[in-house]
Amino acid sequence: MKRIIGRLGYMLIVLIVSSIAVFYAIRLSGGDATAAALPGSATEEFRQEFRASIGLDRPIYLQYFAYMGKILRGDPGRSITNNASLIEMLKTHGKNSLILGGAAFALVFVIGIPLGVLASLRRNSWADHGIMSFSVIGMAIPNFWLALLAVWLFASTLRILPAAGCCSPKQLILPAIVLAFEGIALTVRMTRSAMIENQNNDFVRTLRAGGLSEWRVMGKHVLRNALIPIISLAGLRIGQIVGYALIVEQIFGWPGIGQALVTAVLRRDYPVAQFFSLILVVLVVLGNWLADTGYTLANPRLRRSK
């Protein structure tokens, strides 16, 4: 329990540091907010006035405190390109991203773990070699390329799935698989090696000597032990999915947070870019905390330690 709460403290520190980093990075990224928000004919005087009106003329650390204050009060502001409420944008885009990311996250484990278990139980068989080759390919192919291949194959050639769009289940399939692909490949690998490692444990012999079936020994005891490292790295998978969502949402025209963020950066829409970057940071940090909590709960040796 203490461990979980301790991690919560770390999480806060990470959030504060990364919010500062995001805030500065957006400002350092160059470009001028007025260029996006105002017509090219606007006078320099008017531009100054505009900056002052949204607080851009103040020292950057004051801007940061003012901004964080507003965020904590639940008022992140509005887009400077179309005046849309950021809270409203978060609701619609966030929901879409959660659907896509959640589906991908589930696929990583629902596909990755059984394949890894199968490979470990049929070691050096055709099934094992097949699964491991698939895993190497999965880790090697960049996901934007995989996305293009998938669209070409399933949408253009076979015409069985839509190429892009949101948000029907059919439209979800391709982006979710592409987003999950590398995670699946990694999870297969990890599951296989964790299973093999635990199959050599002494307790396996004890369980067999107890007359338990192989199915029980492998499917219950060895798998349960193998899950500990897999769960502990689930946080990394979340980070990976969040990062890749930027690209995959763009390619498949999936209106999630990643897509909104990319659009905002291209338009130099500071408030949107800043806010959604922060949201992504929160997601990654929260994901890591959840994974760490899961790890602690899955491992009795940590659960009751003080």
Binding site: N201, D202, F203, R205, T206, L207, R208, A209, G210, G211, L212, S213, H221, R224, N225, I228, A298, N299, P300, R301
Partner: peptide, 22 residues
Amino acid sequence: RRVRSEEIAMIFQDPTTSLDPV
């Protein structure tokens, strides 16, 4: 499997690693 531990049972050397930790 039926014979194991019902007819013939076995105890191993190292009790620290011989029990499933989870």
